[in-house]
Amino acid sequence: MLGFRTLNGHGNFLHVSFGSYAPTVFASLESLVLFRQDFGDACLAGYSRFSSTTTEEFVPIVDRIRKVVNDQTNKKVSL
C-alpha cells in the first residue's frame, strides 16, 4: 500500500522493508505498536515483522507510516 517491499508469507505475520525510512518509521511507531524491527539472518535482513491483526487495528499504524513517509518526502522536495 505504501510502496514498501513486503513478503507475502503464510503465517499470521508479514514482513516489510522500510529501507532508508526505517529509523524514522521505527521512532514514529514506538508509542503505538510492538513489532520485530529486524533480523540478524541474511535471508531476512532489512525486513521488519508485524503479526497480523485486523484492518481496523492496522489503519492507525499504516496512517502513521504514511505520515512519516510524506513528511520525509516533503522535506526532501523543499530542500
Partner: peptide, 10 residues
C-alpha cells in the same frame, strides 16, 4: 498501552 504485534499471537 501498545498494540502487541511482536509475538505472532491472535
Amino acid at each position: 498501552r501498545l498494540l502487541w504485534l511482536d509475538k505472532n499471537e491472535n
